[in-house]
């Protein structure tokens, strides 16, 4: 875990992609480094600037329609830098609009279908109604993470390409909002050192082991010193409890609808 330079957490276009407290994800990563004696800093990439290839983590957050289109233009112009960074082991973590931009294409607010970055094979189209509320996700077992808790608010439906895996299975809420072939609902995308998700909240303050997974990838270890997360554990218990009540209510409603 010895590094010569501070861990550089890139907050990409916070003015455009910062709708859901996305700065919080950067703050959590930096703090969890510092609390372990690892130097870290937030590097903000201002809208309109090209992405540097020297960051350890690239955070893409949520944004509204026009902002998402502008962010996409800037990111596509920097895709060579992003490829170089990923080749050198950089981590990509993308939320909501950020997740949509990672894919091959997405539908803009006016219905136009625009190119994404194409880092992973997924497509996003507009759906009927917005998915809003608490979400619970059981992450892919290979990640050895505990249940994820978050909040979603998006109109997009994201379909994963063949052979592309999700971050996890949704037990409460909508996530990608498109049923898989086995009928399951999934959230986000999981690839090599890349995670995308519809969960915000922001998601990392509520899910410290997901934050530590990303940091482990950066620092090259899966044995980070545990931190005292008592408050976070209380918050997790509260949010998971709330979400499960919501899930039970939704299932009861569905049963009534199918019966009646």
């Amino acid at each position: 875990m010895t590094r010569e330079s501070p861990v550089r957490i890139g907050l990409v276009y916070p003015d455009l992609l910062g709708t859901y407290g996305d700065r919080g994800n950067a703050l959590v990563l930096v703090e969890r480094c510092r609390r372990r004696g690892v130097e870290a800093e937030i590097v903000e990439v201002a809208a309109g600037e090209p992405l540097p290839d020297s960051l350890d983590v690239y955070l893409f957050g949520g944004g509204e329609d026009d902002a998402q289109v502008m962010a996409a233009a800037g990111m596509r112009a920097s895709s060579a830098a992003l490829d170089r960074a990923r080749g050198g082991g950089a981590v990509v973590f993308a939320v909501c609009a950020g997740l949509q931009l990672l894919g091959t294409s997405y539908a803009a607010g006016d219905g136009d279908v625009l190119d994404g970055l194409g880092l992973v094979e997924l497509e996003t189209r507009a759906g009927e109604g917005r998915c809003i509320g608490e979400v619970v996700v059981e992450p892919d077992p290979s990640l050895r993470l505990r249940t994820l808790t978050g909040f979603e608010n998006h109109g997009g439906r994201t379909r994963l390409g063949p052979g592309v895996g999700p971050l996890g299975r949704v037990t409460v809420g909508h996530g990608n909002g498109v049923p898989e072939s086995d009928g399951a609902t999934v959230d986000g995308v999981l690839a090599d050192r890349l995670i995308g998700t519809y969960l915000h909240g922001p998601v990392l303050p509520r899910n410290p082991d997901l934050a530590d997974l990303l940091l482990g990838w950066v620092l090259g270890t899966d044995a980070l010193t545990p931190l005292g997360d008592t408050l976070v554990e209380e918050l997790r218990a509260e949010r998971l409890h709330e979400a499960r009540l919501r899930g039970r209510r939704a299932r009861r409603r569905d049963r009534r609808l199918t019966r009646g």
């Binding site: 910062g18 859901y20 809003i132 915000h200």
Partner: peptide, 9 residues
């Protein structure tokens, strides 16, 4: 606002 993620803004 049902979503308090603004706390981080």
């Amino acid at each position: 606002g049902r979503d308090p993620s603004w706390l981080f803004d």
